[in-house]
């Protein structure tokens, strides 16, 4: 009987349900934001108060859908083309916290930023005190404390969060037949599904997350077959949580991400440049910052 089989099919797939605890945190955060907005306690300019984070000694650039010339200089990573680019819709900036998890604890934390131009993205690897502080906050798996700590440390108000496991990213790297991780002045290194994590750990202080992240994005951008791209990404097991009520709509957000042509990896600096970058991020001028700090 097909009806009996259906009951068994549904029961068999209950295990696909994601864990409730992180989602409960995101729901609470989203609720608080929407409620504040309803009560008029949130400044209207909050939608523009997007990024902020950290500065940059080294810049690693990977190209995603190269098109109209980016103001950031392509470095050792070279370029990779993907399918036909569409005109990038301008809009509000977008900031996502990216947490790479190992066994429930963060292996690395970064920030992905899409500026208002919506034609590029920046992946910022947190490497110093910020990374340690955020890691400690996130150790219990709660999203709220992590985002609060991020805002306190950097002024960044994230719109969402992407959770990735090291196992999931290993699957992606293997599916890509490896990636090239590049660091300015350090050349490129080909990494496999087994070797990327040791590389990231060895280079944590110098932005291993940015190198690996841009390598992965470059590999994904080189895939022209949508079905294969989908299969590769299905292996990532990524979980994405929306934290912001300022987003006009999910659809607008998807439009913003669809227009991205260039991805730049940025490593958090230890010096005074941090403040400058912080300001440039808040004013959505990361391209100018990178032009002024080419490495």
């Amino acid at each position: 009987m097909i009806e009996d089989e259906l009951r068994e099919v549904f029961a068999d797939h209950e295990e696909l349900a994601p864990p409730a605890a992180p989602l409960a945190e995101a729901i609470e955060e989203d609720y608080r934001r929407r409620r504040r907005r309803r009560l008029g306690l949130r400044a209207g300019a909050a939608a523009a108060a997007v990024v902020a984070v950290v500065a940059v000694p080294a810049v690693v650039v990977a190209m995603h859908r190269p098109a109209a010339g980016p103001s950031v200089a392509p470095l050792a990573g070279g370029t990779a083309s993907a399918g036909a680019a569409t005109d990038a819709p301008a809009g509000r900036p977008l900031t996502l916290v990216v947490a790479l998890m190992t066994g429930g604890a963060p292996e690395a934390v970064g920030i992905a930023h899409v500026p208002a131009s919506h034609d590029r993205a920046y992946l910022i690897a947190l490497t110093g005190d910020d990374a340690a502080a955020l890691g400690n906050e996130f150790h219990d798996g709660k999203v709220g404390p992590l985002t609060t700590a991020l805002t306190r440390a950097t002024g960044v108000t994230p719109d969402g969060m992407v959770l990735l496991t090291t196992a999931g990213l290993s699957t992606v790297v293997s599916s890509l037949d490896g990636i090239d991780a590049c660091q300015q002045g350090g050349g490129c290194q080909h990494l496999t599904g087994e070797s990327w994590l040791p590389y990231l750990r060895t280079n944590a202080a110098t932005g291993g997350l940015a190198s690996v992240g841009t390598g992965v994005l470059k590999g994904l951008a080189a895939i022209t077959d949508p079905a294969r791209l989908s299969r590769v990404l299905d292996g990532s097991g990524a979980m994405t949580l929306s934290l912001s009520a300022d987003l006009p709509s999910h659809h607008d957000l998807s439009e913003a991400l669809a227009g991205i042509r260039t991805v730049a990896g940025i490593v958090e600096p230890a010096g005074a440049d941090r403040t400058e970058l912080f300001q440039d991020l808040k004013t959505d001028r990361l391209d100018a910052y990178l032009a002024a700090h080419p490495g």
Binding site: H13, L16, L96, G160, V162, L220, P226, L229, S230, L233, D234, S236, A238, T240, S242, L247, H250, H251, L253, S254, L257, A258
Partner: peptide, 20 residues
């Protein structure tokens, strides 16, 4: 729910996840 929601786009996915 609109197809091509932001969640799928964030992970650059264009179709539902296959079960394991």
């Amino acid at each position: 729910w609109r197809r091509g929601s932001w969640l799928r786009r964030v992970v650059l996915r264009d179709r539902p996840v296959e079960p394991p």
